[in-house]
Design a protein around this nucleic acid. Structure first.
Lengths: 237, 237
DNA sequence: GTGAAAGTTTGGTCATACCAAAGGTAACTC
DNA sequence: GAGTTACCTTTGGTATGACCAAACTTTCAC
């Protein structure tokens, strides 16, 4: 098991081999990687190379590293993609335009989602939506809890297409789009407003009216953006 | 300029500092990074640490590294996010379900895009679509060229919302969803079919008929998928 | 001025060493 | 004997210093 070509990056070979062992399951998921000194023997490479490989795997989300602990193998999944993006996305969000773009894309996606829901939601989806809405209603007095149920309600919409990519996107939106807004700018009054918005969306879905659903969703998210914008005294959009 | 805390990762401090210098522009975009031995002096760290930092920055897409050359500074943009995702996404595409999910999400997005186009396309968008379609028509005999114009036509749709996130997604779809399918499975006959599908989409947009546009787009992409599926003799979807 | 040759810089890799924290073990307390 | 504590070993984080080959510069010949 030696390292074939040498175009100036032995670490990449190690990365590739470890990558293969991870996806193949030879290195079991959630299991700590062998010690560095053992890997260097295994691959016939210096510790320098091994460490670089580990660093790269970490950046790619294939292993989880804590400061002084053994890296933990993590088989790549959709959340891994999110994790990999996160590092970079944060830079784009330092400018207002970046936040706006991300938020707009969310509105765009969710508009399509509620439209989809209105025409294609199954019985179970409807049940989930109703449950989520009820949880939402009951949480109105508790802003902390309301935030959670708010996210959960939208989350149901993302699960309707039964494509794991959408819940992943949802997770991205909620984790990147300044959760601090939502958590901090809440009050029972605003919670009530948002609950009613959710109810309007669900009502339109129950009516199987995609146009109304999309409109209700759009109003909901636009209003939320407007509230944030005004509160933080940002200029025009 | 020493390294403050020490929770077991001096490299991260260096990463953070370099990161700051990159986003602030102190390290100009498209400019080579200082030599490693210079950086170690600048940050008072060993070469080990400097190299690890460079590796991390590379993984995050903030610098571009070629085997034996100085890393080139690259201010993070939307393409950088794509780049960061790409490494991981590829793992999800080894399974058929991953490909299917990605393709379905593309269909979902484009459905929403053509709908948007039908109701909100501006004059310039229409012009761009017409031009792209005409290019597409003229390229029918040349499959290589047809592929290019095909991608370009869809690309116009992604630019209509004027949100850079969408063109980025488009780039992701075209680069991840097996370009080899599109490039290899083409023939003037199929090109003709696809051209007509594009024309149907544009016609619906010109009619300002979102329902018809969405339907035309859906048929187009579903047919393309079906063709690939049958050609590669995959089982049911 | 142009291209080749010689010299210098610099990235990639290795070997070695040290430290401090994590992990494990044996002794020790109650 | 369960729970501590003291101690020893392993192992990740970092620093040095060295060497090579490829990239970069300068020199020099024509």
């Amino acid at each position: 098991m030696d390292i074939g070509n040498d175009t100036g990056r032995a670490a990449d070979s190690v990365v590739a081999m470890l990558e293969a062992k991870i996806v193949s399951g030879e290195l079991e998921n959630q299991t700590p990687l062998p010690a560095e000194r053992e890997l260097m023997e295994q691959f016939g490479a210096s510790r320098t190379v091994i460490r670089e490989a580990i660093s790269k795997l970490s950046s790619r989300g294939l292993i989880e590293t804590r400061p002084r602990f053994r890296p933990i193998v993590r088989k790549p999944d959709y959340a891994t993609v999110l994790h990999a993006c996160g590092n970079v996305v944060q830079h784009l969000l330092t400018e207002r335009s970046g936040i706006k773009n991300l938020y707009d894309s969310r509105v765009f996606i969710e508009r399509a989602l509620v439209r989809e829901a209105a025409v294609a939601a199954r019985k179970e989806d409807i049940v989930n939506l109703k449950t989520a809405l009820e949880d939402n209603r009951q949480a109105i007095p508790d802003s902390q809890e309301f935030y959670r149920t708010d996210v959960a309600f939208h989350g149901v919409l993302y699960r309707i297409p039964r494509n794991p990519i959408f819940p992943t996107m949802h997770e991205g939106y909620t984790s990147w789009l300044a959760p601090q807004w939502d958590r901090m700018l809440r009050s029972p009054e605003r919670n009530e407003v948002n609950y009613l918005a959710h109810k309007a969306i669900l009502d339109a879905i129950l009516e199987r009216d995609p146009v109304a659903a999309e409109e209700a969703l759009t109003n909901h998210l636009k209003a939320a953006w407007e509230f944030v914008r005004v509160t933080f005294d940002w200029g025009d959009e």
